[in-house]
Amino acid sequence: MRAVAVRAFRADPEVIHVPKPEPGPGEVLVKIEYAALNPFDWQVAEGFFDGRVPHVFPLVLGVDFAGRVDVVGPGEHRFVVGDAVYGQAGRTPLGTGTFAEYVIMPQDAAIAGVPDGLALRAAAALPTAGMTALQILRAGVALEPGDSLLVVGAAGGIGSALTQLAAARDLRVVAAVRGDERERMGALGAEFTVDTTEESVREACRRAFPGGLDAVVDLASADPESFAAHAALLRPGGTALSTRSAAPPGRGVNFQLRADGALLEALADAAGAGQVHMPVEGEYPLEKAPEALARNRAGGARGKTLFVP
């Protein structure tokens, strides 16, 4: 089968041919119809996780997908051939990814059925960004309707999903972005949008919420100093959370996604209820994946990139 892979860390991604996998006990083989790009994908290719988790080469990239069950392995199973499914193929060893024609998924992993009414194209854009946003609101920050939430880096995939899901819970969302995104973020549910190239987040938030914010979710800051500047905008007792491990010990929460099928099912329910959708920036064949990975690494994404095997 065709797949997008690197032959070594920091090598250029390329389209190669690898054997079509066969499912074992408790696994399904999914024929991929759409795979979605995440920053995690180029981070894996660059070796960010070398020494932390095992890898296999050639290392097939990608984790998010939607497709249909093609083969069911031996044993008990949740799915049958032809089922529409979506999920996140982030298990170790890294390198058996979704930028390919097929992927193997354990049936007890982060895979769930796609409900009627949700297109596979829309489902493929949801898993990593949507599960992260949903789990942050479920377990990362304790908020009530009417509470204020600052989302730093709100224009990307996680930020877009988080803004929508928070607005659906009647939270007052402040979206901090680079560039004029007031119209788009407002359509996603943000009450305020701050263009950080024109105004400081501190000044805008102090003006709108002089008593401090109830929570901050920082999706952008990679260093403790930048994270601390955003956390300083909290009211006493507020929560600051980082998705980039920038929170110093005792001064915030460093969030890590714990993906599973139940979370995907809840996300699908939210999507079906119209509470979240991921805007798609572009749709490309696998041959365009190397260029798309380079663009994503440069930053500035305003929606999800999908690949069609």
Rank of each mutant, 00 (worst) to 15 (best):
A222T: 15
A222V: 15
D223L: 13
D223M: 10
P224T: 03
P224F: 04
P224L: 00
P224A: 05
E225P: 05
E225Y: 12
S226F: 09
F227A: 01
F227H: 02
F227P: 05
A228H: 06
A228Y: 08
A229L: 05
A229R: 09
A229M: 04
H230L: 06
A231D: 04
A232S: 06
A232C: 05
L234P: 03
L234N: 05
L234M: 07
R235K: 14
R235A: 12
P236I: 11
P236S: 10
P236E: 11
G237V: 08
G238Q: 01
G238D: 00
A240N: 00
A240K: 04
L241K: 08
L241T: 05
L241V: 05
L241D: 03
L241N: 02
S242F: 08
S242T: 00
S242V: 04
S242H: 01
T243D: 06
T243Q: 08
R244T: 07
R244M: 13
S245W: 15
A246C: 01
A246G: 06
A246S: 03
A247L: 06
A247E: 03
A247S: 02
P248R: 02
P248V: 01
P248F: 09
P249R: 10
P249L: 12
G250E: 06
G250T: 08
G250Y: 12
R251L: 10
R251D: 00
R251I: 05
G252Y: 05
V253H: 13
V253A: 11
V253N: 10
V253P: 06
N254T: 00
N254C: 00
N254L: 01
N254H: 01
N254R: 00
F255N: 06
F255Q: 05
F255A: 05
F255K: 02
Q256N: 11
Q256Y: 11
L257E: 01
L257P: 05
R258P: 03
R258V: 14
R258D: 11
R258K: 13
A259M: 10
D260P: 03
A262E: 13
A262R: 14
A262I: 11
L263Y: 12
L263M: 13
L264C: 08
L264I: 06
A266H: 14
L267Y: 10
L267T: 01
L267G: 02
L267P: 04
L267W: 08
L267F: 11
D269M: 12
D269A: 15
A270M: 08
A270F: 12
A271T: 12
A271N: 11
A271L: 14
G274Y: 12
G274F: 14
G274M: 10
G274K: 07
Q275P: 08
Q275I: 11
V276Y: 10
V276N: 01
H277A: 15
H277N: 14
